[in-house]
Amino acid sequence: MLLFLAFVVMPILEIVVLIQVGQVIGPWWTILLLVLDSILGAWLIKREGRRAWSALREQVETGRLPHKELADGALVVLGGAFMLSPGFVTDALGILLILPVTRPLFRSLLVSYAGRQVVRRVEVRTNGTRPGPTVVRGEVIDEQ
């Protein structure tokens, strides 16, 4: 479902939004707005990426677990990936992931998602229905 959204719905939505914006402000202003949006996004990625990296280094150097800083770094990278794709919808989502004002909301969503995945995998392993090949314990004897 996520792949369908990413590769079918998002491009169609981006094209529709680009056409609508182009009809309202004109094609040249739309192109200029996309260029300015990309410049703003690159500046934001650079600034917030440096902040996230420095906060991560500080946490590691003081011996504390950098869970918040790792989540922030992941969100800045994901936001940067959205900013690289052309279009207003992905740029808006990317900016929301990068901005320090809106990042805590997305950080909590990311942490809750990661927590659910860990719990789900632990439950699968403790129920004895571990996915993957069957492991047979034994010894290797070299007969040379």
Results as ranks from 00 to 15, higher is better:
residue 14 E to K: 05
residue 132 G to H: 08
residue 37 D to P: 00
residue 11 P to N: 14
residue 94 G to T: 03
residue 14 E to D: 00
residue 128 G to Y: 06
residue 9 V to S: 02
residue 119 V to K: 10
residue 121 R to N: 07
residue 78 L to I: 13
residue 46 K to T: 06
residue 74 A to M: 09
residue 25 I to V: 14
residue 35 V to K: 01
residue 84 L to N: 10
residue 112 S to P: 01
residue 119 V to M: 11
residue 5 L to W: 06
residue 129 T to M: 13
residue 82 F to W: 11
residue 84 L to H: 10
residue 36 L to E: 02
residue 38 S to L: 12
residue 132 G to V: 09
residue 110 L to C: 00
residue 103 R to G: 05
residue 54 S to V: 04
residue 6 A to Q: 14
residue 32 L to Q: 04
residue 59 Q to S: 15
residue 74 A to S: 11
residue 21 V to T: 04
residue 111 V to Q: 14
residue 82 F to L: 13
residue 26 G to F: 06
residue 18 L to E: 09
residue 122 V to L: 11
residue 114 A to E: 07
residue 81 A to Q: 04
residue 12 I to H: 01
residue 46 K to Y: 07
residue 93 L to I: 13
residue 137 R to F: 09
residue 53 W to H: 12
residue 83 M to C: 10
residue 90 T to P: 01
residue 15 I to E: 06
residue 130 R to C: 04
residue 6 A to H: 07
residue 130 R to V: 08
residue 122 V to I: 14
residue 33 L to C: 09
residue 25 I to N: 00
residue 74 A to F: 10
residue 80 G to D: 02
residue 74 A to L: 15
residue 131 P to A: 09
residue 55 A to C: 09
residue 51 R to Q: 09
residue 54 S to W: 07
residue 1 M to N: 00
residue 3 L to C: 01
residue 87 G to H: 12
residue 86 P to Q: 14
residue 135 V to I: 05
residue 67 H to D: 15
residue 133 P to T: 06
residue 10 M to K: 00
residue 100 P to T: 11
residue 92 A to W: 12
residue 103 R to C: 10
residue 10 M to T: 05
residue 58 E to F: 05
residue 12 I to Q: 08
residue 59 Q to Y: 01
residue 52 A to D: 03
residue 97 L to M: 14
residue 138 G to N: 03
residue 19 I to M: 05
residue 116 R to A: 15
residue 83 M to F: 12
residue 36 L to D: 00
residue 91 D to S: 14
residue 19 I to Q: 05
residue 35 V to N: 00
residue 25 I to L: 02
residue 85 S to Q: 14
residue 57 R to I: 01
residue 78 L to Q: 03
residue 139 E to S: 07
residue 31 I to N: 05
residue 49 G to Q: 00
residue 95 I to T: 14
residue 54 S to A: 10
residue 52 A to M: 00
residue 80 G to Q: 02
residue 126 T to R: 13
residue 42 A to R: 06
residue 30 T to Y: 02
residue 17 V to G: 03
residue 13 L to R: 01
residue 133 P to S: 09
residue 57 R to F: 06
residue 94 G to L: 04
residue 67 H to Y: 15
residue 50 R to A: 09
residue 130 R to F: 13
residue 32 L to V: 12
residue 28 W to E: 07
residue 94 G to V: 02
residue 15 I to P: 00
residue 138 G to E: 04
residue 28 W to R: 10
residue 100 P to N: 06
residue 77 V to K: 01
residue 105 L to K: 07
residue 14 E to N: 03
residue 113 Y to Q: 14
residue 92 A to H: 00
residue 12 I to W: 05
residue 142 D to Q: 10
residue 32 L to F: 12
residue 126 T to S: 04
residue 41 G to D: 00
residue 85 S to T: 15
residue 45 I to C: 04
residue 116 R to K: 14
residue 31 I to A: 13
residue 75 L to I: 08
residue 37 D to C: 12
residue 47 R to N: 05
residue 30 T to H: 01
residue 101 V to Y: 02
residue 17 V to Y: 08
residue 9 V to T: 06
residue 23 Q to W: 12
residue 118 V to C: 06
residue 121 R to P: 02
residue 33 L to V: 02
residue 134 T to S: 08
residue 50 R to V: 08
residue 97 L to N: 07
residue 91 D to Y: 11
residue 24 V to A: 03
residue 105 L to T: 13
residue 42 A to D: 01
residue 93 L to N: 03
residue 128 G to D: 03
residue 35 V to M: 04
residue 27 P to G: 07
residue 136 V to K: 10
